[in-house]
């Protein structure tokens, strides 16, 4: 079970549970999150911070714990938004975990399982945000964190097509979108929407100033809706573009879009069913992108139909105006 708490197998370090002795509760290690460092006896303790969001009061408490247990007095912000306490002596695992638990802070995971979701700021405070990415990350963390899978399974949530959370590079990524609709009677022909559209999906009629919309160019960012002074452009519906099979690492792969406008309340079902499919079809040590390459995307899509039918097809175009 040693691989449960050592980052993948690339570190090639064995930690003998016997040497840790009674001081470490096996359950503390089982969820992973302890990563062997170069330095003898020292580990990185990775915390579980879904969406990279943390209450300031908790951060203050974590700072105190990090200051106490990090032999070098340093932390690192991981690439997946979780705080890592560096240079922790493995003999202190039990103490640090129990102190973290007291302030409600859990340790993250490594290895072949559903990882802590990452997310941008989302619609709560980011003006571009279309979906509640933070709420989604929290929900996914609660429901799926640590679920065993053939290899690591990374999820992320971006609130808009700028895609700061890089859903295209995730095993399973969700990116917020909005479908714009236009109502002629409210439009004054001011041409702001055609200026605001960065995709050239809207040009203004030279005579009336009213928009001529090219749905093939629209990426559903909602800039037209936000810019319109008279609410002639409105949001018809919000949802997620769902992407599967992306990864970075030594051999990066770009994801495949498998659904659009999937509503918020189907995200958990999508993950549940995808993990089910992955566990049934994936080989040990194989990322889901490679499983899909080997087994075929159609088999996956057929399996997912009961969930993805709640969204729109991948090549969905907004109706013209």
């Amino acid at each position: 079970m040693t691989d449960h708490f050592i980052e993948d197998k690339t570190t090639k370090v064995n930690v003998n549970l016997e040497t840790i002795g009674e001081r470490v509760d096996f359950n503390d290690l089982k969820s992973g999150g302890f990563i062997k460092q170069r330095q003898k006896d020292l580990f990185t303790v990775r915390l579980r911070c879904p969406g990279g969001r943390m209450e300031t009061k908790k951060l203050v408490e974590i700072s105190k714990i990090a200051d106490k247990y990090s032999k070098k007095g340093v932390v690192h912000f991981s690439f997946r938004q979780s705080l890592e306490i560096l240079y922790v002596d493995y003999k202190e695992f039990r103490n640090i975990v129990s102190e973290l638990e007291k302030i409600g802070q859990k340790v993250a995971s490594c290895g072949p399982r559903v990882r802590v979701p990452t997310a941008c700021g989302g619609c709560e405070y980011n003006p571009n945000g279309l979906t509640d990415t933070q709420g989604m990350a929290e929900m996914v963390d609660q429901k799926f964190f640590g679920t065993p899978t053939p290899h690591k399974f990374k999820t992320s949530f971006s609130g808009c097509p700028i895609d700061c959370s890089r859903t295209k590079e995730m095993d399973f990524g969700f990116q917020g979108i909005v479908e714009p609709v236009w109502e002629d009677p409210l439009c004054t022909g001011c041409t702001i929407c055609s200026e605001a559209c960065k995709e050239d999906a809207i040009v203004s009629d030279p005579d009336t100033g009213k928009p001529i919309f090219d749905p093939k160019k629209c990426i559903f960012c909602g800039d037209c809706i936000r810019a319109c002074p008279t609410e002639a452009w409105k949001a018809k519906r919000y949802g997620h573009i769902v992407r599967i099979g992306g990864k970075h690492g030594r051999h990066p792969m770009e994801s495949i879009e498998v659904s659009t406008f999937l509503p918020d309340d189907k995200v958990a079902d999508a993950i549940q069913k995808t993990v089910e499919w992955y566990n049934a079809n994936g080989k040990r040590g194989e990322r889901i992108g490679n499983t899909i390459k080997r087994v075929g995307i159609q088999k996956y899509l057929d399996f997912m139909e009961p969930v993805f039918k709640h969204g729109s097809p991948v090549n969905y175009l907004a109706p013209g105006v």
Partner: peptide
């Protein structure tokens, strides 16, 4: 023109004419 009008809207003002 891409950014200012939408920020003004977000602050609760009304754009009457463009």
């Amino acid at each position: 023109i891409q950014n200012v009008p939408k920020s003004i809207k977000e602050e609760g003002h009304k754009i009457l004419e463009v």
